[in-house]
């Protein structure tokens, strides 16, 4: 194992994060606070409670998921796209480092960043609402799995993208709608039956639901289904990444 190589990539990527530390921390804190003000105060005053949990607290897992998903995609896709774009990727390709090690370096760094942002948002929310976490272990497990799997997806997008537009396309057109329609800010039981059924095809629903269960012990879909969904998704992404390195897709001429 080329540990020094993994560390070099990981450090380099983390340095990018810390170069813009203010932006990295301030922006999630600010947007979370705004969500609390808008959703928690404005809508919360009408909704009051969802299945025994105050609406302000109810949206916390969804808020964390929203940020963690977008940050994972952004960080990981940019992390690998940028060296491709400016040509420094030659060095990684010619180094004595395996594909697995490259992925651990890039995806690991992206996942760490979004994990940190998730933690920051959780801490911020303690200032706005009372929350207790029913299953801390599962909360962390769901969070880590989400960070890793969506960083893998970001990595794939970064390799696939041929322009900055394409880089932003998937998060914008696919992921953000899925997050908003995935029960981040409501329970799908509040929806008409037809939309409940449609929602079941939204993979993000399973993430949010499992994550929320870890907080409050309640969920839209069975926890086992959530676990299967996220594990399956991670496996799928790993498979695609494996194929990319095997064929050199958009990495090697």
């Amino acid at each position: 194992m080329n540990w020094n190589g993994i560390q070099a990539i990981w450090r380099f990527e983390m340095a990018r994060f810390f170069r813009s530390i203010i932006q990295s921390i301030v922006s999630p804190v600010l947007s979370t606070s705004l969500y609390f003000v808008v959703f928690g105060a404005a809508i919360g005053s009408r909704i009051q409670e969802v299945e025994g949990v105050s609406y302000g607290a109810f949206i916390v897992p969804g808020l964390i998921m929203l940020s963690v998903l977008t940050q994972s995609l952004q960080n990981a896709s940019f992390g690998i796209y940028f060296p491709k774009f400016i040509g420094t990727i030659y060095e990684v390709l010619s180094a004595p480092i395996s594909s697995l090690e490259i992925v651990i370096g890039y995806v690991g760094a992206a996942a760490c960043k979004s994990l940190m942002i998730g933690a920051i948002i959780l801490i911020t929310s303690f200032f706005f609402v009372d929350i207790s976490i029913a299953h801390p272990f599962w909360m962390v497990a769901f969070l880590v799995l989400t960070c890793v799997s969506f960083s893998l997806l970001g990595f794939i997008i970064g390799i696939w993208a041929k322009s900055f537009e394409q880089l932003n396309l998937v998060p914008l057109l696919v992921v953000t709608p899925l997050v908003f329609l995935g029960g981040s800010f409501y329970s799908i039981t509040m929806l008409p039956p037809i939309w409940q059924t449609i929602s079941l095809f939204n993979p993000v629903l399973y993430l949010v639901s499992g994550f929320r269960w870890a907080f409050f012990g309640m969920s839209d879909v069975p926890v086992a289904a959530s676990l299967v969904a996220i594990t399956g998704f991670t496996a799928l992404c790993l498979g695609i990444v494996w194929w990319i390195f095997k064929t050199g897709y958009r990495l090697k001429a």
Partner: peptide
């Protein structure tokens, strides 16, 4: 091809690390 905002020392260190050297 160089990472524009990286310091010279860091980018050279990065290369050594990438090649598995302490």
């Amino acid at each position: 091809n160089l990472e524009p905002f990286e310091f010279v020392m860091n980018t050279v260190r990065f290369s050594r690390g990438l090649f598995g050297k302490a």
